[in-house]
Write a protein that binds this DNA or RNA. Structure first.
Lengths: 308, 308
DNA sequence: TGTTGTTACGGAAAACGTAAATATT
DNA sequence: AATATTTACGTTTTCCGTAACAACA
């Protein structure tokens, strides 16, 4: 059994049982993979792939069990390379982060600036996506870190650390009725529901919290625009399309002239931006440092184990 | 990086940093290992071994981190072979069990008999040792199962299932004063401490419970013989050397004529014989079956995951 | 008929063991 | 001096890619 054979197995499954595509992914040739699979099956004495004639269609039962172990083995093998790179050049390498628009635009910039200053030789690789996409990228080991509000705390294959809490705000143009109430009058749900609303799409940036709050109150808001990012929300609020509900971190008094934000935490509850890593990954020293910069007050002892 | 290089790394550490011995263990030659180590270090760009000149003395910090991952990777690799063997010939193979004298002599025989009948093609390999040795063997993956009373429930790298509870008994010759009391008079500690005692050595078969019970009562027993196994205890009790305290399962009315056993659970508490497996191992189907035979009423769902 | 997987073949690279050299205690 | 590791070298094996072949849709 060779590592190459296991890599082939993994690649073929990932390529949906096409030797041709898997060969491209691995930068190898079809015959090489064909042989690798054949040799693996011969050596193990087990049929790994379900076939229809010569076509590969899926994994057999033993194949599934074998793939699971192969996957874990390769993960460990890969982390050996990471460990070496880390010791060899502690402050150089690549850090891949998947995150949402809100975090990338409003929460991460100070951290990124500090990080680049401290680790100029580390190439930062930010990928933006939906929470679902982000978690998929982390799961597939395409990124080292995922940063989002919508992280599943229950997934046992992840380590999750809280970075900071934030609340929603209601944003309106400065000539809007809601803008000129005395600030001790908190905005209420019945008041909000009178206006057309501009907020996030399903699944994004605490939208679920917003829906839940209205549903609990038995109210049916009129969402006229469901955006992916806060900038779009602010743009259309400024145009007078409706009242915005968005993450508080996206509002800045200086920059967002013409817009007024009013707290909405009492309506939609607190949210928590979190950082997630795979618990079977090896974390480079600078990756730990990034988390530390982003979540300075969090308890990182468990995560630090991944750097040992 | 090749699997062979990782195997070499593991073997060299196991052989206390001797390439020569490691080569013997692997059935290879010194030069081959020397090269393997050199190539691994070159490829990773990291010094793995601490050296004094050419002598290997230990692992460097990166070396330790690398070995840990290599070890896990190789574990998974090895389990691939096990999985294949299991699917290829479900009812043939080797089952290696480490256990103590008491279990081997009194608890296991019925299970072994049933198992051999059901799985005649499985070679059963029993190793007897002290609880400490047994756990070491399991930890080193020299055996698949460890069976003992003194299993550490807290070790997170193990899965432990309870097999059955048992209690100690006091054994005396049938002409001994303690033998002829009415059975509703339970034996007491102050009564016991009047006689010289014959029981187990430190660390064996619940000896700790015995010491703890006497200590709690502020009594100082006179242990005239500390044996490893119950047969020695019974022999010397029969000779009149003293009163025996041993595992109840070691007493059989039929066989042990001339000896009387009186319950001592109320004095020393209940003990539990347990089966332990490494939680990162792959369990062959027949290994699961063995556990099931030995601990029929235990909940094996978690252990069964190891056979997936 | 075009696509996908397998077999055949030749060359390149790698791994190994024996033997010799070198370092360590 | 004895033991242990590295280097040298020739052989063998293994692995890969191109090309030809076979099978599926």
């Amino acid at each position: 059994m060779t590592l190459q054979q296991l890599r082939v197995l993994r690649a073929v499954v990932k390529a949906q049982y096409s030797l041709t595509r898997a060969a491209l992914d691995l930068g190898s040739s079809q015959p090489a993979l064909s042989r690798a699979v054949a040799e693996l099956e011969t050596e193990l004495g087990v049929t790994v792939f379900q076939r229809h004639g010569k076509r590969l269609l899926g994994l057999t039962d033993p194949g599934k069990a074998i793939l699971a172990r192969a996957d874990q083995a390769l993960t460990h093998i890969d982390s050996i390379a990471s460990i070496s790179a880390d010791f060899q050049a502690r402050d150089a390498g690549v850090l891949r982060i998947a995150t949402t628009h809100t975090q990338a635009r409003y929460a991460l910039p100070p951290t990124v600036r500090a990080f680049r200053q401290r680790y100029p030789a580390v190439r930062l690789n930010l990928v933006q996506g939906s929470p679902r996409q982000i978690m998929q990228l982390l799961h597939d080991r395409e990124v080292d870190l995922a940063i989002a509000t919508e992280i599943d705390l229950e997934d046992p294959s992840l380590m999750v650390v809280p970075a900071f809490d934030w609340e929603h705000v209601v944003v309106v143009p400065d000539d809007h009725p809601l803008a000129n109430q005395p600030s001790k009058n908190q905005v209420s749900l019945p008041e909000l529901v009178k206006y057309p609303l501009v907020t996030y799409m399903e699944e994004f940036t605490g939208r679920r919290r917003i829906d839940a709050a209205f549903a609990r109150a038995g109210l049916h808001p009129d969402v006229v625009l469901a955006a992916i990012d806060s900038d779009v929300i602010k743009t259309y609020v400024a145009l007078g399309l409706g009242v915005g509900i968005m993450a508080g971190l996206a509002y800045d008094v200086q920059r967002d002239k013409g817009l007024i934000a009013r707290p909405a935490g009492h309506l939609f509850g607190a949210n928590c931006t979190r950082v997630a890593v795979r618990s079977d990954s090896f974390l480079r020293g600078f990756a730990l440092a990034f988390i530390e910069l982003f979540a300075p007050q969090a308890d990182l002892t468990r995560v630090r184990q991944l750097g040992r």
